[in-house]
């Protein structure tokens, strides 16, 4: 039996030297909810490099799914920019944006609702090829068969409709569709959350393999810390639409710096009765995104908060270890550690 925490990823090429494929700058998304303004995403900045898997974690209301959609321009941001391979998405025409979609794709949480129930899964896998390539019908069919094989979906399923497949098989269909045009970035929005454990493992295997063989970058959005830890190179932790910590997976999971990250990690239950739990149960509730706190968003629940934490929003700054950044003024004086 293995100790928990020995599954760190190591990659051959240093990720920091690779070209950024996607950059989000000062991203803001506000929703109008019955006259009030809901601040879903607040000044978020991050970069995804070629072939890198970035895990985005946070609890409900943290804005992680919204960010996933903003990044692909499925939602329009209130302000800020998303740049994909040097192109500012907001400046593109509808046509140019559609063409660019061949290079950036998405896999959703619930494969049952992400597929057209009245179209064969083979046609749905081939749809991006139909839209973005000039392949003939027979060439497309061959490609679809290869894709099915790639995601280990038996070819006999291709002529069936989604209702005839299981959840795991449907998620494989969604993944095949997402990689059909060999995109450089795939956003995965909770891709394994609705699946059973053993099915989930198969999908994770597949994603790791696709990254290895196709070099596709991924934004892996999930609330499941175990899964994110397993697959990600870098982690972004969100709280109330703001990045509180960002850094290499090993560092963020091994020695979380921000008090919220520490509390989040401590609530995770590894499936090993012998693993010691160092729990810090958070008091109170997440503040409303309609009335955002002025200072640090986490100050109201933070056990190590100082009065000045509520004065102004702490900047996301380098902590000095590798390329980790965190938004907590207590890191400087070493008072950020929770008593776990």
């Amino acid at each position: 039996m293995n100790a928990i925490g020995d599954t760190d990823q190591t990659t051959a090429t240093p990720l920091a030297e690779r070209r950024p494929i996607l950059t989000a700058r000062d991203l803001v998304k506000e929703f109008d909810v019955g006259g009030a303004t809901l601040h879903a995403v607040n000044d978020v900045n991050f970069t995804i490099r070629q072939g890198e898997i970035v895990g985005m974690v946070g609890e409900s209301g943290s804005g992680k799914s919204t960010i996933g959609r903003l990044v692909l321009s499925l939602l329009k941001q209130t302000s800020g920019d998303v740049t994909f391979d040097g192109e500012n998405l907001a400046s593109l025409s509808d046509k140019a944006l559609r063409a660019l979609r061949a290079r950036m794709q998405i896999v959703f949480q619930d494969p049952w609702s992400a597929l057209n129930p009245r179209m064969s899964v083979g046609r749905q896998i081939g749809e991006p090829l139909l839209l973005h390539t000039n392949l003939s019908r027979s060439e497309r069919r061959q490609r679809v068969e290869r894709l099915a094989e790639r995601v280990r979906l038996p070819a006999k399923f291709l002529s069936r409709t989604p209702a005839e497949l299981s959840g795991g098989q449907l998620q494989r269909v969604c993944i095949a569709r997402a990689i059909a045009t060999e995109p450089e970035l795939v956003v995965l929005d909770e891709p394994t959350s609705s699946l059973d454990l053993s099915v989930r493992a198969g999908i994770l295997e597949l994603l790791a393999e696709l990254r290895r063989e196709l070099g596709v970058a991924m934004l892996f959005i999930s609330h499941d810390l175990g899964t994110v830890k397993l697959i990600s190179d870098r982690i972004i932790v969100l709280y109330l639409g703001t990045i509180v910590e960002e850094g290499p997976a090993s560092l963020v999971f091994g020695a979380p710096a921000h008090p919220y990250t520490q509390a989040l990690m401590s609530a995770h239950l590894p499936p090993n009765p012998r693993a010691p739990l160092k729990r810090h149960v958070l008091e109170g509730e997440v503040p409303s995104p309609i009335n955002l706190p002025k200072g640090c968003r986490f100050a109201s629940r933070c056990p190590v908060a100082l009065p000045e934490c509520s004065d102004s929003l702490p900047p996301l700054v380098a902590t000095g270890e590798e390329d980790r950044r965190a938004a907590c003024i207590r890191i400087a004086d070493g008072g950020n550690r929770l008593n776990l």
């Binding site: 039996m1 293995n2 928990i4 925490g5 599954t7 454990l197 053993s198 989930r200 493992a201 994770l204 295997e205 790791a208 393999e209 290895r212 499941d224 175990g226 899964t227 830890k229 397993l230 697959i231 590894p270 499936p271 090993n272």
Partner: peptide, 11 residues
């Protein structure tokens, strides 16, 4: 148990 992310060995 081996399918839990904590024990899963990718690859």
């Amino acid at each position: 148990l081996s399918a839990t992310p904590e024990r899963l060995k990718l690859g």
